Amino acid sequence: MATVKFKYKGEEKEVDISKIKKVWRVGKMISFTWDEGGGKTGRGAVSEKDAPKELLQMLEKQ
């Protein structure tokens, strides 16, 4: 499965696309949330040019 790689608060992170729940556009950035388990929700953002095609497809479906 595809993953999204991004930096959050200076830390490199990687999230499996299948865990992503919500995707939206903020200017030229793609923001998203995912389920971290245990009732926690993670947040992240990646530039439109660095976003994997699967993430962009999720954005178009909404």
Rank of each mutant, 00 (worst) to 15 (best):
M1Q: 15
M1P: 09
M1C: 15
A2Y: 03
A2T: 13
A2Q: 04
A2K: 09
A2L: 06
A2P: 09
T3Q: 03
T3I: 10
T3S: 05
V4W: 01
V4D: 00
V4E: 00
V4G: 00
V4H: 00
V4P: 01
K5P: 00
K5Y: 02
K5E: 01
K5M: 02
K5D: 01
K5I: 03
F6S: 05
F6E: 01
F6P: 02
K7V: 07
K7I: 13
Y8I: 03
Y8F: 04
Y8M: 02
Y8T: 03
Y8N: 03
K9D: 14
K9N: 12
K9L: 09
K9E: 12
K9A: 05
K9Y: 14
G10S: 02
G10C: 14
G10E: 02
G10D: 06
G10L: 01
G10M: 02
G10P: 00
E11G: 10
E11L: 06
E11F: 06
E12M: 14
E12T: 08
E12A: 04
E12C: 13
E12S: 07
E12F: 10
K13I: 14
K13A: 03
K13F: 07
E14I: 05
E14N: 03
E14Y: 03
E14C: 07
E14H: 06
E14G: 01
V15R: 01
V15W: 00
V15S: 01
D16P: 12
D16Y: 07
D16N: 07
D16I: 11
I17F: 02
I17H: 02
I17K: 02
I17A: 03
I17M: 06
S18P: 04
S18H: 05
S18A: 12
S18M: 11
S18Y: 04
K19E: 10
K19R: 09
I20M: 10
I20T: 02
I20N: 00
I20W: 01
K21R: 08
K21E: 13
K21S: 10
K21Y: 12
K22C: 15
K22T: 13
K22G: 14
K22I: 12
K22M: 14
K22D: 13
V23L: 07
V23A: 10
V23C: 10
V23P: 03
W24M: 12
W24A: 06
W24Y: 15
R25W: 06
R25C: 15
R25N: 09
V26L: 06
V26R: 09
V26Y: 06
V26W: 05
G27T: 11
G27A: 15
G27D: 15
G27H: 08
G27E: 11
K28L: 11
K28V: 11
K28N: 13
K28D: 14
K28C: 15
K28H: 07
K28S: 07
K28A: 04
M29I: 11
I30G: 00
I30N: 00
I30K: 00
I30Y: 09
S31V: 09
S31M: 06
S31D: 13
F32L: 06
F32W: 01
T33W: 06
T33M: 08
T33N: 06
T33Q: 09
T33H: 13
T33E: 13
W34H: 05
D35V: 04
D35L: 07
D35Y: 09
E36W: 07
E36D: 09
E36P: 04
E36M: 13
G37P: 08
G37F: 10
G37M: 11
G37L: 12
G38A: 11
G38F: 13
G39R: 08
G39C: 15
G39K: 07
K40A: 13
K40L: 08
T41S: 09
T41Q: 09
G42C: 15
G42V: 08
G42H: 08
R43D: 03
R43C: 15
G44A: 14
G44L: 04
A45G: 14
A45T: 10
A45N: 14
A45V: 15
A45K: 03
A45S: 07
A45H: 06
V46D: 00
V46M: 09
V46S: 03
S47L: 08
E48I: 04
E48W: 04
E48Q: 09
E48V: 08
K49M: 11
K49F: 08
K49N: 09
K49Y: 08
K49C: 15
D50Q: 13
D50I: 09
D50F: 09
D50G: 10
A51P: 04
A51Y: 02
A51F: 05
A51M: 10
P52C: 04
P52T: 04
P52Q: 03
K53P: 12
K53T: 14
K53Q: 13
K53C: 15
E54F: 04
E54G: 06
L55T: 01
L55I: 03
L55N: 00
L55Q: 00
L55A: 01
L55R: 00
L56S: 11
L56N: 06
L56P: 02
L56T: 13
L56G: 05
L56K: 13
Q57S: 05
M58F: 04
M58L: 11
M58W: 04
M58R: 05
L59K: 03
E60C: 15
E60W: 03
E60T: 09
E60S: 13
E60Y: 05
K61M: 10
K61T: 12
K61D: 12
K61C: 15
Q62A: 15
Q62G: 10
Q62K: 14
